[in-house]
């Protein structure tokens, strides 16, 4: 089913690519210096809703709750962009994307922005027509084993079958096990749900997956969670990033600085609860971020209160992280602010 959907999407891409903008014109428009308007922003405003690509089945990132509301750090990252544009975080239409469709959906304009567990890599930017605006979550690869197997380190896994996702899972497993010279049998799946089922059915001895995804998987197991152990070793870097289409710099700015404002708010101690108390702040940085002074919002074609709306309705970065991950018991690790030894760092808002 997902498959036919992916195919249909690809065909739409082909169709749009061959018949859309420019028609038969062969030469792309010459690059204009510093565009002041964004075609994507204009389209989003006209539509009245932001089309945001998410995985839609990834706990803690994007998964509908019992009321059908999309929850998780990716879902909230979408909400933040909507809040910055419309002053209303609910104006988001979530588009669920399978891994193979994610970049295509951004390239073809089917979604305006995608927060879909996409790892920021160089060739994805240089070859695929997408651009990464920000990293909303720093992840790494981890190893989950059944406690009963008694395995305590990856070098004890000789001959083991390893469940993983096709693509990046396969290449990272090959690199890691090649490095530590351990033979393994790859069991690749095209979708996370199939992989988790097969792992629980003991099709494999190990699940090789994102640490955050493993933590949320364990959280869904309830009483059985204690039967599985996450090995202390991790591998690689997986900066999960928000992607936009190349060629609309102004839109790129909006997505990038929405995230930047959330990190800045956390650094300044502004939360969704206490933001009202900052209205009378004398701190020039706070005043600029909240739009009391300066023209940060208008410089991107947004309202003055864009960042204030984001913090009021979605919260700062830390609040967003807590909402998504605190229940899973995972430490914040690299996703702390730089001041606390993490990797999140706001560029000056001036």
């Amino acid at each position: 089913m997902r498959h036919t959907l992916a195919l249909a999407r690809l065909l739409t891409l082909t169709a749009t690519a061959c018949c859309s903008v420019g028609g038969f014109s062969q030469t792309p428009a010459p690059p204009t210096s510093a565009p002041t308007s964004s075609p994507t922003l204009a389209a989003v405003k006209a539509r009245g809703v932001l089309n945001c690509g998410v995985i839609g089945s990834s706990a803690n990132f994007s998964l509908p709750d019992s009321q059908g509301v999309m929850r998780g750090i990716d879902a909230d990252s979408c909400r933040a962009v909507a809040a910055a544009i419309f002053g209303d975080a609910t104006k988001v239409k979530y588009v669920s994307l399978a891994p193979a469709q994610r970049l295509v959906a951004v390239q073809s304009g089917e979604v305006d922005v995608a927060y879909a567990n996409i790892t920021w890599t160089m060739t994805r930017e240089t070859k695929s027509g997408v651009q990464f605006a920000n990293v909303n979550f720093y992840d790494a690869w981890g190893f989950l084993v059944p406690k009963a197997s008694g395995v305590s380190a990856t070098n004890k896994l000789n001959g083991a079958s390893v469940c993983m996702l096709a693509g990046p899972g396969e290449s990272n497993a090959a690199e890691y096990f090649g490095k530590i010279k351990v033979r393994y049998k790859a069991v690749p799946f095209s979708e996370g749900e199939q992989m988790r089922k097969a792992f629980l059915a003991k099709r494999c001895d190990v699940m090789f997956h994102d640490v955050a995804a493993i933590a949320s998987f364990k959280a869904t197991l309830g009483a059985q969670a204690g039967d599985y152990v996450l090995l202390t070793e991790t591998y690689g870097r997986e900066p999960l990033a928000g992607a936009v289409r190349k060629g609309d710099e102004r839109w790129f700015d909006i997505v990038r600085y929405t995230y930047n404002a959330m990190v800045a708010a956390e650094e300044l101690g502004i939360t969704s609860k206490n933001i009202k108390t900052f209205a009378s702040s004398a701190d020039p940085v706070v005043k600029r971020v909240l739009g009391i002074d300066g023209d940060l919002g208008p410089s991107m074609g947004l309202d003055k209160e864009w960042a204030a709306n984001v913090v009021t309705q979605v919260g700062n970065y830390g609040e967003m992280w807590e909402r998504a991950f605190s229940a899973s018991g995972m430490p914040r690790g690299p996703n702390q602010l730089a001041a606390q030894g993490g990797l999140h760092y706001a560029f000056p808002m001036q």
């Binding site: 690519a17 061959c18 018949c19 792309p28 390239q107 070859k127 027509g129 060629g247």
Partner: peptide, 13 residues
Amino acid sequence: HVTSANLQSRGIH
């Protein structure tokens, strides 16, 4: 021709 020109204009190899 048009497809490849459009892909190129979007920075897609």
